[in-house]
């Protein structure tokens, strides 16, 4: 996949951008309960950063450098986590997707972070989105390598 159109400059930029993109995605994720942001958009931002690595370094090198091989499996782990958050209220006899602590009462604060189960749900959505997009990219890249050989 060493395409001549991918220059050293692109690769440098891609590498430099990765960390800020991931930080911004986490910021958007935790921001979700005070301002604009949620798990889905944060996941899309993070996965765009990872896609940039695939585009500039190719599948094998990105997989090796960033250990991305397990990310697609994380999609299903994220889905399981989201389902767990949705279904656990059933054990307490409440309808699905009831969040805790309930509206109106105080949340647990860690610094300026509010911890409620909706945050847990959004984190699983984040993992799910990143896993799915990386999985799509890897599947298409693998199909492409099959042709090249």
């Amino acid at each position: 996949m060493s395409d001549s159109s991918v220059t050293v400059l692109t690769q440098m930029t891609a590498r430099l951008l990765l960390a800020p993109i991931l930080v911004i995605s986490v910021a958007v994720l935790v921001n979700g309960y005070a301002s604009v942001g949620d798990g889905f958009s944060a996941g899309v931002i993070a996965s765009l950063g990872l896609l940039l690595q695939y585009v500039s370094f190719g599948r094998e090198r990105s997989d090796r450098l960033l250990r991305l091989r397990l990310v697609p499996a994380a999609a299903f782990a994220g889905l399981l986590g989201a389902l767990a958050v949705a279904l656990v209220p059933l054990l307490r006899g409440e309808p699905i997707l009831t969040h805790w602590p309930p509206p109106g009462s105080d949340a647990i604060y860690v610094g300026s972070l509010e911890l409620i189960t909706a945050v847990a749900f959004d984190v699983t959505v984040y993992v799910l989105v990143v896993g799915c997009v990386v999985g799509f990219a890897r599947a298409i890249a693998r199909a492409g390598e099959g042709v090249a050989r």
């Binding site: 499996a73 299903f76 782990a77 889905l79 399981l80 389902l83 279904l87 059933l90 699905i96």
Partner: peptide
């Protein structure tokens, strides 16, 4: 709660078995 059961069982099983 009976209404959630079939949905929950198939969904959780699907997500878990996708890893295998």
């Amino acid at each position: 709660m009976l209404i959630v059961a079939p949905l929950a069982i198939t969904w959780v099983a699907a997500a878990a078995l996708a890893l295998l």
